[in-house]
Design a protein around this nucleic acid. Structure first.
Length: 359
DNA sequence: TAAGCGTGGTA
DNA sequence: TTACCAAGCTT
């Protein structure tokens, strides 16, 4: 889908000078990051997936650990999913990890273990969207392809004074079309990374450092004194609260009742302690609910904690309660009585890691 | 297209 | 505390 706005937007914009100033600054000022040691496509790929909606400082230790556990694409392809999720534990958006492993397995099967270097094949891989595709092509292979993330939309909306709502999918396509026109053919890697690095270090969301900006003279928003008003971004609605009772149930051998979540939806395939919705069940009937759900006779103890778990779209209010398993045969297929040592191998959501201090 | 999908940092 | 954010993708 062509965009006839692009030539209008780029009128009187000095592309060559802009490319030079941006790339020169990037080569001078770029941060030293573990995934910048070389351009190994597998490393670039893993880092780009981890960096989706996630801060650099958060990603660094996860990336180091992940690379030592799964040094090559093949290591990741042949690993157990549970180990991969454990390495991802705490990083969030866990479908990224599962999609990455699915995609890596496909690369082993269909591409002789080499990461594809064209748009069509890359885009067909699970978890590789328009941004990640462009990032891998440009950074790992030096192929000019737009990599439009939040940084890029913020920077370019200010430079070119674009007032489209960056929360809308259509706006990302507009920026892709603009970048196809202005990306450096000689060094697309430094161009794309330079845009993102500028957004991270200088052209920040609040109070950007325009006085230090290497492309200040190209910036229409700065010249208009309106850099604080861009980008335009519509706000999202706030989360709904959901109350649960979350249960730490121990048997006479010191084993804990845990269960694996379904393989789709929120926290897919992670493990958790049993949770009862207090919207659907009366707190006075919880022992009966456990009997029906797990086939176990328990006697509940007391409330030991209240934990709030905030997701992007929902908030769990967890009332943590202890209890003892008295009798019965566990009859739920996704559930298990697990020793503390076994539990250490399983991936849990952050809220349930916090619960473990009461064991 | 809009909603679903995590977590931790910051104003 | 609340609101918003941080190198997005899938459905």
């Amino acid at each position: 889908m062509k965009n006839e706005q692009v030539p209008v937007i780029l009128e009187d914009f000095d592309v060559a000078q802009y490319q030079h100033d941006l790339i020169h600054w990037f080569k001078q000022e770029q941060r030293i990051l573990p995934w910048r040691a070389n351009q190994d496509p597998y490393k670039v790929w893993v880092s780009e997936i981890m960096l989706q909606q996630t801060r650099v400082d958060t990603v660094i230790p996860y990336f180091e650990n992940f690379m030592s556990q799964f040094p090559t694409l093949e290591d990741l392809a042949y690993a157990d999913e549970e180990r991969v999720l454990k390495a991802w534990e705490g990083l969030g958006y866990y479908s990224r990890a599962r999609n990455l492993q699915t995609a890596v397995r496909e690369v082993v099967e269909n591409y002789e273990g080499r990461v594809p270097h064209n748009e069509k094949e890359l885009s067909s891989l699970k978890g590789v969207g328009p941004y990640t595709k462009g990032a891998i092509l440009s950074i790992a292979y030096g192929i000019p392809s737009p990599a439009v993330d939040g940084n890029v939309m913020r920077v370019l909306s200010r430079i070119l004074f674009i007032e489209n709502d960056i929360a809308k999918p259509a706006t990302r396509k507009l920026f892709e079309n603009i970048i196809r026109e202005i990306i450096s053919q000689e060094d697309p890697s430094s161009f794309n990374q330079g845009l993102m690095e500028l957004g991270a270090l200088v052209c920040t969301p609040k109070s950007p450092s325009c006085m230090l900006c290497p492309v200040q003279e190209h910036c229409r928003a700065f010249h208009a004194g309106k850099e604080q008003l861009l980008p335009v971004k519509s706000s999202k609605k706030k989360q709904k609260r959901k109350p649960y009772m979350s249960l730490l149930l121990k048997d006479e051998h010191g084993r804990i009742l845990v269960e694996k979540r379904p393989d789709d939806g929120l926290l897919a395939n992670l493990w958790q302690f049993p949770m009862v919705s207090l919207e659907e069940h009366n707190r006075l009937n919880v022992e009966k609910w456990i009997q029906g759900e797990y086939g176990l006779q328990v006697s509940l103890g007391s409330t030991v904690d209240n934990i709030k778990h905030t997701f992007s779209h929902v908030i769990w209010d967890l009332e943590v309660m202890t209890g003892e398993i008295k009798s019965g045969e566990l009859d739920k297929s996704n559930a298990r009585l697990s020793s503390p040592e076994e539990m250490e191998q399983l991936p849990f959501p952050v809220s349930h890691q916090k619960m473990m201090k009461h064991l």
